[in-house]
Structures are given as structure tokens and as C-alpha cells.
Design a protein around this nucleic acid. Structure first.
Length: 805
RNA sequence: GCCCAGGUGGUGGAACUGGUAGACACGAAGGACUUAAAAUCCUUUGGAUUAAUACUCCGUGCGGGUUCGAGUCCCGCCCUGGGCACCA
């Protein structure tokens, strides 16, 4: 009687076995080389695991399992990033404390993750909401504060009207809130900020030495937005004031015919008395302040502005008097908040100058400035530019910068688009910011011995209408003594953003129970850096950038031994709904992993997600494809348990060649994240075994080892059936014997004038002479070669033979 | 507008540094088993032509080019997805 592949029994049996034998626990005292695999820990939402999660987790599970068999001491941990809005919103609706809901969700996630058989080291599980964990999140914040990298400032921030919460620039997408899609307006608020800009240079430069996929590197570089140029001072006529501008095109200085200040520029108020039309100017300033980010970017069709009448600026290169305007196309937050306008060679300035009839002076040849601005920096030569005339723009830049420096009116300068990180949230479910504000002493950190500063209990979780955190209502908690002078003081009531806990979690896995330090020095040295980190593209400019920043800071103060956290970063594509659209409850196309596991088994789900398509690409879910993969596993089971094959003591040259090729292919594909073709290679091998009706024990074992990272439960069961007492994890990953397929018989193409006219079979390492002889004997080839002279013969061993006649 | 990916059968996708396009899988069609169905197994499956799974022709978004040979390289376009966006 055939034995049935009962995946439910098999999968729970082996999950239990792995846990009981602690097979996946990383060893802190091992002689083996270490390997640290990391996946982004999930936010434990109420909906449970998404089928997208296992895509990433299975991929690195495969890597982790392969590394163990290659003799590494592997750390593959998991935890939960559990602070955040959904649990809080649920609390607002139901009154159930976020901690309770979060605990429940984590339990569900843990169950789901375990049901998929990932080789996580569960003994190191962490949650960012655990006070023993966030003690160290707060501790890092205090170090940032002590080193002047955390500061509170009044500034215009992005404020989501729906969430009633301040947002980091990174969290605003197309003028809308990244999380809820609500309208985002500018609001002036006192906010805690982190000086990530201080690290802009290193965050960009150090990317070069990292093994990150190229897309991630370019996205981070674009976000950091480094640009090189010059700062130039323009004097204000009859005044001691100067207008400092940043430009990437100092070569065009002779073409600067007017200046534009951002409406928020401080100089406008200073020059109040000299500006004859100040009421008009003031009106413009107020109008643009009212605009939301969305309006300001949407209204980009028509430029607006007002001239500051009564004041003029002086162009330092030619002492020309030029008008000063204000306009909201100049941003206060970039560069110096003021520009020199060169309408002939900048599109925006051109548009503005045309609208307000301002002078346009061409200083580079090559364009037609009667029609449009000519911004090409690589062509043309300088004109109307005194000492720059005749130079190419790139040469002119160098000459101009040294001229500016010589005259003391400017210098070479670098600018970044990156802005400081808004770190306050007026929310309950986050880490309290451990700062006390004392009337006398200012901002005083909570003493390190008093950490963690626990999140107090509240009755209401709602942010107040004036945008205050729910903590602000707890007067007993808020009013406290200054740790410094003992006087009356108030606690900070804002909490940290969700990105805080995830900025360092990979360090805690290394030593998750340590209460004396965020992790032990020796252990950090043992495990860092993370060797391979996989996660979503959506975290490239948020989590990934933030955690690199924190890590660099921790490195600078001697807490961690490496300047970068992650050696290698890869990214998985999204899994879309069956119609090719994003999975969402409203579309009703959500696939629940629990259903797939119960209907087809964990091994099928894992294998399907690896097989469905290129790992880094977005792919729609296809239940039919799941069925196909399940059939494959059924057949593998039936090789031994039904009559599809026999295990025999035999030598089979064909299978021996194929198994060695498969070893090579699967090994290489896993490293290159080509899981789909690795699975296909395994299918080809199994089809061949079934085709031959029998297989030797040795080849079957090699096949099972190759399959084991993908479908570990099934393989463990079969491994046991083959007579083994220990887990397949204890085996050694096989090496391909390339000599086995060196002189395999292959079919090669014979071309005449580039067209395939015949196929011939010969040994892979056959010589050209042998190949030509065989080809010329072919009837069809004869037809093409008759009455022709062969001009040239091209032979690619193992591939093709080509005659040119 | 700029910066990344990408465009291959009915579908998801393969194709090493330019070397047999369509691996593997899904779907479909036909057959076997079955009282029947499901499951399973076998065969076929880019298009045209054909008795033929012989030969030939066409075929990797479009138009050119380089080459004995182009899905792959070069030039010029079109389209899709993602990122950035008045960043001076």
C-alpha cells in the first residue's frame, strides 16, 4: 500500500523535533566561522502574516540552512517591531490597551511563523515594546542627545491632519501621509530632531564599499541628494546685509540678472524699512504660508512672486545692480533659501523671467535663448563673461570658484537634500522620550540608571485636538523634579517614531537578555556585521538609512565595532493579488498563509514563493502555480513511497552527470537569489529520477540535501525513511564534481551563414576537426555546402559550429 | 521633467561573458485507469506551411545599425512598473 504524503503530520513532527533538539540556536562559543542572516522583523498587525512575509523569510531561511550545512555558525533571528499606529488606533476604537492587543498579535504571528518551519533562533526573540528592550532605545537616544545630535526646535513640520501627528520628510508621499493617505499641512511645532544631516556625507560615501543591490544604492544616493557647487555672497545695495546663495552653476554668474528669496527668508524682515511695497510682500508671504505641501507642488504650472521694491543686490562679478524678488519656487529648506537667477540657463528662472519681463543674458553658446533656457553643462562655451570667455562650462566652474575665493566673496560648497529627522510623535504607543524640561536647567536627560522610562498607563489613547500626546494629560507623570537641580520640571510627552526601535534591533539579537549594555562587546565583535540582510524596497530611505545613521553614531562613540551594520543588502519584490493588483482587504484579494499551509502544506508554500518568479520582482499570486509545486512534492514523496522509483544499488552515468550539474546550479542560484531557477533545476532532476524508475541511494541523498533548504519538513521525513537517525541539517552541503560533466554528450547546432541547419551530437570536449567531419556528413548541411566555398568556420565547443560560405 | 528596473507563447517565467529562443511550471487538447468523476499517469502544445513531430519561412515592444550570428551590444523611439520631483 502506498504511503500517503500527510504534510500536516510530517510538518508538525519535524517542527517539534527541531525545537526539542535546539538545532537552530546560534552558538556564542563556536570555533566555526559565523554567519549572520537577517530579515526585517514584522510589525505584528491584527490581520496576521501576509504572504509577502514568507517570501523574504524563506529566501534567507534557505541561505541560513545552506550555510549551516557548509559549516557555519549561523545566527538567523526573529522578533517583532510592535510599536506603531494600528494597535493604537485599535485602542482608540475599542479601549483595549495596545499592549494587550500587541501581545495577542505577536502570539498569532509566532504561531504562523513557526508553522512555516523557518530556522529562526527563537531563543533570541525580541519585541521593541518590551521595556527591557526599549530601555536601550532610550539609552541610544540619550547618547545622541549628549553628543548634540538630538535637539528640540520650533520648526515648520509636516503634519498629518488625520493622524494628528508630525511626520518625517520620508513619511510624506506626494504631499500625503504615507500611512493613512491623509492631507499633510505645514505646522509650526516644537519637535525633537536628530541630526542625520551630520552623517550625510558618510552615509553616501560609504555606500561604495557595501554589497547592496544597485537599486538600493542609487535610491539612497538620490535621497541624500549630494550636489557640488559654490556659495556666493551678493551685497545688498546701501546696506551691510548680504544675500548668500548656493549654486551648482557658478560658471553662469555673469548671467545672473535677478535674485529670489524664499518667502520665509529672514532677510525680508530685516529689510522691512527699505522695502517700499512691504504690505504687498507681506501678503504674499502669508499666502504661501497657508499653502500645504500638496498645493505648493501641484501649483507648479504658473510661477508667482513679488519684487522687493526699493532694494537691489549687487552681482559680485560685475558690480551690476539686480532686482530682488521673493517667490515660493525657492525653498527655505534647501541651500541658503535664496538663489541667484540665471534665466538664460535655468528652466525655472527662465519661466519666471519671461512671466515678469526680467532680463535674460546668454553666457553659454549652443542654445536658443529666445525659445528656452539652455542648461547643458557639457557643451558650448562661455560668452559675455569677461575672464571666463571661451572656456567650457566645466572649466569655467573651476576658474570661477578660485576667483570667488580669491576675492573673498564665495567658495566651493556641497549641499544635500537630506534634512534632519523629525523624531517626535504626539502619540501614545511609542517609546517615551527620556527628557525632562527644567525651567532653570533647560533640557535634562533622565538618568541612565532610571531607564527604562516606562510608558505610563492612560485612560484615553486619542491625540488631543491641539495635537498633544495623550501623555500630556497625565499631570502626575508630567510634573516631576529636575534630575539636575531638583526644582520643578516637566517630562517630555512626545514619544519616538516607529523607526526608533527598528534602528538597532539587529544588535539586540546578538545579546537579547543583557541588562547591563545593549549587547556585550565581545559578542558584538563576534557577530557584526550582519552578513546578509533582506528586506523591502519601501524601507530604503526610511529604516535602512536611519539604522545606518544610528549604527555609525554608535561606532563613533565606541559602542559597536563596525562602521556599517549590514555587509550585504538585497530586496524582494512584492507579492500582488491574483489580478496583478496590490493585495488589500477592500479588493478582497488577500491570500492568507494559514489557508495555504492547511490546504497544501508549509513546504508547498515555501517552494511556491521561491518558484513563482524572480525574487526581486513583483509577482501576482497564482493558486494554480501552488498546485503545480504541490504536485512536484507529491512526486518526490512517491519516488520512495509509491511506485515512481526504487532506491537501488546501481550506477547510472546519466543521473550522475545531472546530479552534479544540479549541485552546481542550485548552489550558485541560491547565492545569486535565483531561487526560481534553482527550483526548476531540482524539478528537472526529480523528473529524470522518476523517468528512470530507480535511483541510487547516494544520488537520492544528494538530491534531498539540495531540496532540504526549500522543503525542509518533507526532506527530513524522507531522510529518515532512507535510514538516517539524525537531521539532514547535520549533513554537509555537496560539492559538484565538474569532471563528471566535462565530456558529456551534447547536441550542438550547425549553422550556415548564421542559420541553424542541423544539430549534431558529440562529446562536449570534442575538437573542431571532429565536429566539422560530423557536420559535413549531415544530409541537410551537405545541401547547403554544395558548390560553395567555406570562407570561415567558427567553433564554440559545446555550443555550435558555424560555416560562413 | 530626471533617475532606476523592465517589455519574450494563452499565463508565470528560462536563456552562461553575443552562440540551438521558449527551460521549468500553469493552462489547454487528446489518451490510459475508472460504472463515472476527482486524483494520478502518458502524449501534444509559439505561429505559418505540411501527410509529416521531414524541409522551409516568420517570431523576443517599434525603427535602424554592428556581427558569420543579436532577446542579449550600439543609435533613435514607444509603452509599463518603481523612486525623486521648483533641490538652484
Amino acid at each position: 500500500m502506498d504511503k500517503i504524503y500527510d504534510y500536516k503530520i510530517i510538518e508538525s513532527k519535524w517542527q517539534k523535533y527541531w525545537a526539542e533538539h535546539k538545532l537552530f540556536e546560534a552558538d556564542n562559543n563556536s570555533e566555526k566561522p559565523k554567519y549572520y542572516c537577517l530579515v526585517e522583523f514584522p510589525y505584528p498587525s491584527g490581520e496576521g502574516l501576509h504572504v509577502g512575509h514568507p517570501r523574504s523569510y524563506t529566501a534567507l531561511d534557505i541561505v541560513a540552512r545552506k550555510r549551516r550545512m557548509e559549516g557555519y555558525n549561523v545566527l538567523y533571528p526573529i522578533g517583532f517591531d510592535a510599536f506603531g499606529l494600528p494597535a493604537e488606533n485599535f485602542a482608540i476604537k475599542t479601549g483595549i490597551h495596545p499592549a494587550i492587543k500587541t501581545e495577542e498579535n505577536i502570539a498569532n504571528f509566532r504561531r504562523q511563523l513557526k508553522s512555516l518551519g523557518f530556522s529562526f533562533d527563537w531563543s533570541r526573540e525580541i519585541s521593541t515594546t518590551d521595556p527591557k528592550y526599549y530601555k536601550w532605545t532610550q539609552w541610544i537616544f540619550l547618547q545622541l542627545f549628549k553628543h548634540g545630535l538630538a535637539y528640540k526646535t520650533e520648526m515648520a513640520i509636516n503634519f498629518c491632519l488625520d493622524c494628528k501627528v508630525g511626520l518625517a520628510n520620508e513619511e510624506v508621499v506626494n504631499g500625503k501621509c504615507e500611512r493613512c493617505g491623509g492631507e499633510v499641512v505645514k505646522k509650526t511645532k516644537k519637535q525633537w530632531m536628530l541630526k542625520i544631516t551630520k552623517y550625510a556625507d558618510r552615509l553616501e560615501k560609504d555606500l561604495d564599499d557595501l554589497d547592496y543591490i544597485e537599486r538600493v544604492k542609487t535610491q539612497q544616493k538620490n535621497w541624500i541628494g549630494k550636489s557640488e557647487g559654490a556659495e556666493v555672497d551678493f551685497a545688498v545695495k546701501d546696506s551691510n546685509e548680504k544675500i548668500k546663495v548656493y549654486t551648482t552653476r557658478p560658471d553662469t554668474l555673469f548671467g545672473a540678472t535677478y535674485m529670489v528669496l524664499a518667502p520665509e527668508h529672514e532677510l525680508i524682515q530685516k529689510l522691512k524699512n527699505e522695502i517700499s511695497n512691504f504690505s504687498e510682500v507681506e501678503k504674499y508671504i502669508n499666502d504661501s504660508a497657508k499653502k500645504s505641501d500638496l498645493e505648493r507642488t501641484e501649483l507648479q504650472k504658473e510661477k508667482t512672486g513679488v519684487e522687493l521694491k526699493g532694494v537691489k543686490a549687487i552681482n559680485p562679478v560685475n558690480n551690476q545692480e539686480i532686482p530682488i524678488w521673493i517667490s515660493d519656487y525657492v525653498l527655505i529648506s534647501y541651500g541658503t533659501g535664496a538663489i541667484m537667477a540665471v534665466p538664460a540657463h535655468d528652466e525655472r528662472d527662465y519661466e519666471f523671467a519671461k512671466k515678469f519681463n526680467l532680463e535674460i543674458i546668454e553666457v553659454i553658446t549652443g542654445g536658443d535663448i529666445a525659445k528656452e533656457a539652455y542648461a547643458d553643462i557639457n557643451n558650448g562655451q562661455m560668452i559675455n563673461s569677461d575672464f571666463l570667455n571661451g572656456l567650457k562650462p566645466q572649466e569655467a566652474i573651476i576658474k570661477m570658484i578660485s576667483w570667488l575665493e580669491e576675492k573673498g566673496v564665495g567658495k566651493g560648497a556641497i549641499n544635500y537634500k537630506l534634512r534632519d529627522w523629525v523624531f517626535s510623535r504626539q502619540r501614545y504607543w511609542g517609546e517615551p522620550i527620556p527628557i525632562i524640561e527644567c525651567e532653570k536647567c533647560g533640557f535634562v536627560p533622565v538618568a541612565e540608571k532610571d531607564l527604562p522610562l516606562k510608558l505610563p498607563e492612560v485612560k484615553e489613547f486619542q491625540t488631543s485636538d491641539d495635537g498633544q500626546s495623550p501623555l500630556a494629560k497625565l499631570t502626575d507623570w508630567v510634573n516631576t523634579k529636575c534630575p539636575n537641580c531638583g526644582g520643578q520640571a516637566k517630562r517630555e510627552t512626545d514619544t519616538m517614531p516607529q523607526w526608533a526601535g527598528s534602528s538597532w534591533y539587529f544588535l539586540r539579537y546578538i545579546d537579547p537578555k543583557n541588562n547591563e549594555a545593549l549587547a556585550d562587546d565581545q559578542k558584538l565583535k563576534q557577530w557584526l556585521p550582519v552578513d546578509w540582510y533582506n528586506g523591502g524596497m519601501e524601507h530604503t530611505t526610511l529604516h535602512l538609512l536611519y539604522s545606518r545613521f544610528w549604527h555609525k553614531f554608535l561606532f563613533d562613540i565606541g559602542v559597536v565595532p563596525t562602521s556599517e551594520p549590514y555587509k550585504k543588502r538585497t530586496s524582494h519584490g512584492m507579492i500582488l493579488g491574483e489580478g496583478g493588483e496590490k493585495m488589500s482587504k477592500s479588493r478582497g484579494n488577500v491570500v492568507n498563509p494559514d489557508d495555504v499551509v492547511s490546504e497544501y502544506g508549509a513546504d508547498t508554500l515555501r517552494l511556491y514563493e521561491m518558484f513563482m518568479g524572480p525574487f526581486d520582482q513583483a509577482i501576482p499570486w497564482d493558486t494554480k502555480g501552488v498546485v503545480g509545486v504541490k504536485r512536484f512534492l507529491d512526486r518526490v514523496w512517491n519516488i520512495y513511497n509509491a511506485d515512481l522509483g526504487k532506491i537501488e544499488d546501481k550506477v547510472d552515468a546519466d543521473l550522475d552527470v545531472l546530479v552534479n550539474k544540479t549541485i552546481k546550479k542550485v548552489s550558485e542560484d541560491i547565492e545569486a537569489m535565483r531561487f526560481n531557477t534553482a527550483v526548476s533545476a531540482l524539478m528537472i532532476l526529480s523528473n529524470k529520477i522518476i523517468d528512470q524508475k530507480s535511483v541510487s541511494q547516494e544520488i537520492m541523498e544528494k538530491f534531498l540535501i539540495l531540496l532540504s533548504p526549500f522543503a525542509p519538513h518533507l526532506v527530513e521525513e524522507l531522510w529518515q525513511q532512507l535510514g538516517h537517525q539524525t537531521s539532514v541539517i547535520k549533513e554537509t552541503w555537496p560539492k559538484a564534481d565538474e569532471s563528471k560533466f566535462k565530456n558529456e554528450i551534447v547536441e550542438i547546432a550547425v549553422q550556415v551563414n548564421g542559420k541553424v541547419r542541423a544539430k549534431i551530437k558529440l562529446a562536449k570536449d570534442a575538437t573542431e576537426v571532429e565536429a566539422v567531419a560530423l557536420a559535413e556528413a549531415d544530409e541537410n548541411i551537405k545541401k547547403y555546402l554544395i558548390n560553395q566555398t567555406i570562407k570561415k568556420t567558427i567553433f564554440v565547443p559545446g555550443r555550435l559550429l558555424s560555416f560562413v560560405v
